[in-house]
Structure formats: structure tokens, C-alpha cells
Write a protein that binds this DNA or RNA. Sequence first.
RNA 1: GGCCCACUAGCUCAAUUGGCAGAGCAGCUGACUCUUAAUCAGCGGGUUUCAGGUUCAAGUCCUGAGUGGGUCACCA
Length: 502
Amino acid sequence: MTETSNERDLVRLAKVEELRGAGIDPYPPRLDQPRTHTAAEASAAFEQAEADASDSPVQVHLAGRMLSRRIMGKVGFAHIEDGSGRLQIFVRKDVVGEAAYDQLFKKLLDLGDFIAVGGRMVRTKTGEVSCEAESIQLLAKSLEPMPDKWHGLKDVETRYRRRYVDLMVNPEVREVFVTRARMVQAIREYLDGEGFIEVETPVLQPIYGGAAARPFTTFHNQLKQELYLRISFELYLKRLLVGGMERVYEIGRDFRNEGVSFKHNPEFTQLEWYEAYADYHVVMERVEAMLAHVARRLTGGTVISYQGREIDLAPPWRRVTLRDAIIEYADIDYTQYPTAQALADAMRAMGHRPESTSNRGKLIDSLLSNYVEPNLVQPAFVTEYPIEISPLAKKKAGDPSTVERFEYFIAGMEMGNAFTELNDPLDQRARMEWMQQLYGADDEERHPVDEDYLLAMSYGMPPNGGFGTGVDRLAMLFCDKASIRDVLLFPHLRSLERGEAA
RNA sequence: GGCCCACUAGCUCAAUUGGCAGAGCAGCUGACUCUUAAUCAGCGGGUUUCAGGUUCAAGUCCUGAGUGGGUCACCA
């Protein structure tokens, strides 16, 4: 912390002064010699030279953070780390000189400092490939102590609040975010290869929609207009289909003003796509194909391990109707109970405990999330949803109470949602007005009717299939992390300012 | 928001029934020309998250608060 200067801080600050006094800039603008090799490249170059039995020395200029140091009189060792990994440097007083050795290396450098090292690659007596330093330059002085070199940083709160420290000392954390980036890259690779166009639609929206969630609200001062941070991309992406773009997708941030948990963050990354002339069956095939592609890119196969369980993403996945799934796992056939009251009574009679009787669709959804979802470990599509919880999905032919919709589940988690999109503007208006009645005026989940969206659809929207999935939850899956916070670089935490100001 | 758990040195962790707040690493001083959790000798480092309370005595017990974690609720 910086609010009080303790002895530890004073020692570091005194070193900065001493460096300046000796004419050494503790924060120089650039390296005296440009970096020629990463740590990994330097090792590889040396091993190649060894293999070739070359006599010419491998000269390198390296840069990185000094993580450890072992001083033995007039010779010392240190490990530096750069983006490619760690490398030992070997420092001899008779090579680098007295000033560089005694003053800089032994005294004024600290663990955590960024340094540049020039020298030749050698193998030490114990066989470790190392750089024997001929010059050392301080690149950036660290004023804070590094976490324990052996135990690292374990405190969960500190790891999240100071992710930069977590990243610098815990290489496996960096690895998670590399995997996440590769996953997103593989998703784009699949969609681009299928002719989808990546687009960007507004984050600030005058009317929020496309999902049932409470939005964050903000205000444009000059326009004197209330705006919402988007809770989904759906209504904008489908306007693009009206405009003639046939296959579109967006990867971006959604914001939902709801509870925080191991699988919910107030802002999270969503993937949505819409495809003209496709229905939800086509979407299912794409979801299978896309995630199998991602798995192959990341692991070479389709079987991944998540929290100790093997999950096989190879198509085809299980398909089960919502009704059959609830019969199987909760032993209730909701089609036998046409009203919310009747269904709630039946649930109670079966020993379940429904929380609300306001909405039959919500009761069915609670049966799904409480009894079905935890059992769907292998990938599964749950299909055919009640109309009252699906206002943007097309009705199933011959069954006006059901829509062509699916959600998919992996590892007992809901991963995404899709439908054959409703493109009948008259039906859409009726459904939105019905929602107004279903959700009371005081219900924060009630959506305003988006007249411009209805206008767009009135121009004619091709039949299409749409899909949305949580990218963070996919990252949890592919990185084998049980908490969304472990796949977010900076997960949302409550601010500490209030407590510190008092 | 309810309930449960945690919070001790920069980091990782101890502290018996309520009885002198400790160790390792990191830091500082010194020794040491091939170490790798280097080693050896010495030194400094604490409002035990915060505010109250009980007690001769509180890191430990009680009340409240903060932050984090878990869980339930919420989350088409």
C-alpha cells in the first residue's frame, strides 16, 4: 500500500535516489542495446549451436523481470522472465566489472526489477543453459516487494484486485488467458469460414431488449437522453437481416444489473449469430460443429476434461425436449397443468418448492434449472420451450403453446440459447403486448416495446435461426475453471475506496 | 438481500483451555567465484481488517461494520 511510508518503502526509494546519484536512470526510455532474443529464443539458439558443435559464441541481448537472485561472493545467478519464459543469467564480477557487480547487481537491484542483460550463452557446471552477463542495464525499478518466490500469491481477493501481480508470479494464470484468446480465435475461424460477417452494434441503446434482465442506465448529457448499456445484441443483429446481411455475428460485452456469482459477472462476453434461411435445427448443427472445431484447435481432439469429468464434444449431441427432460429428472409432465396455479400445486405435491406462482413459464424454467440442468453433463440440446418465456421465437407448427427454441447445456451449466427467430411482425407485436401484461408495470424485467424493431420486421425479415452463448462460460469449460472470475482478467469486485476513505 | 466460513509481518502460514504475537521466504548488514527454494552469521519488520463490549488478561469470547469466498434467493 502507498498510504503510509514504512521502512520497506523507504529502502526502495533510497535505492532510486542512490541510482540517480550514480547517474543511473531508474526508468530509462529505452534499452542501451536492442533486444535480440527472447529467453526461449536464446536457449534454442544456444542448443542449436551446441548441436552443430559450433565454436562461435552465441551473443544475445535479453530483457525481462528479475525473479530470483543468488549471490556467492564475486559471482552470482539470477533468473529473469520475459514473455517466452525464464532464463538464468550468470554474473561474474571479473566480467561485468566492479561497478556493475557490487553497486548495481548486488546492491541496487531488487527482485521484480526489469533489466536488460547482454552477454554470451553458456552452460553452467550444473548444466543449465544460461546467459553469462557482460552488461546489465536497469530498465524499470520495482518499488513493491514480490510475493513469496516459492508459495507465490494465493490470496484470492488480492489475485483478483491486483491481477497484474497474479499474472507476474503465476504462469498458469497467463496460460488461462492465452487459452481463452485461442478459443475466441477458433470461434471466429469457424464462423468466418462459414461466410459469417463480424459486425459491431451499439452498446449504448435507447431501448434495451433481447433478454430478460435489468439493465444499467446512463445518460447522454448533450442529447438529454436516457440510455441503457445493452443486455443483448439480438434486436440489432436481426435488423441487419432485414437489411440483407445473411450471416452475421458479434462478439462483445453485455451488461446485466443482476447478482454476481461464480457464473455471473455484471459485464460478460457474449457471442450471437443470426443466419438467414436457417432454422433451429441448422443452428444446433452449427453449435456442435463450432465447439468440436474449437476443441480440436485447443486440444487436438473433441474430449475435454472439466473439473475431473470427461466431456465429449463430438457431434451429434443429445437432443431432448424440455417436456421429456423435466419428466425424466423432475417427474412432472407440465403439459398436464395448463395454468401456473395448477403447475405450482402439482410441484408442491411432488415435494418441489416453487418460489413464485406468477408465471407458468417461470415455473417450468425453475424445474429446468433446478432438476434438469445439473444432470446435463455431456453436451445436450433441450428443445421446444413454452411460448410465455420466449417472446422472440417462432411458434411450433400445430402447437401454439410451444416455440422452436433450444438451450444447450454442458457440465451442468446452461451455455446458450437459440431459436427459429420470429419474423412475423403482427405476431411479434402481439407477443410483445402480451409480455406487457404477463409482466406487471412494476416488474423490472418488463421490456419496453421496441417500435423501431417492429418497423424493421414489417419491411420483411427472412426466416432465420439465431444463437447466443456466453463466451466466458465457454472459457471456463475449455480452461477447466469452476469460477467465471478465473477466466476474466479483471472480475468485478466491490470498490475498497469507501472503507479506506473512512 | 438471507445463511455459513475466512481475514495475523510485503508473501505463505503458526500461536494449547482466554495467559509474553512466532516461523519460513522477502528486506537490511556481513561472509562466500557455478548457484538454482543457494548456504552461513547477525538485524529490523505487527493498530492480529475496523469499531465497540465482556474479562485481572482478548489474535482467541460477544455485538456491529468492512472485504472476500461458499450457498440460497434472484437471474425468459
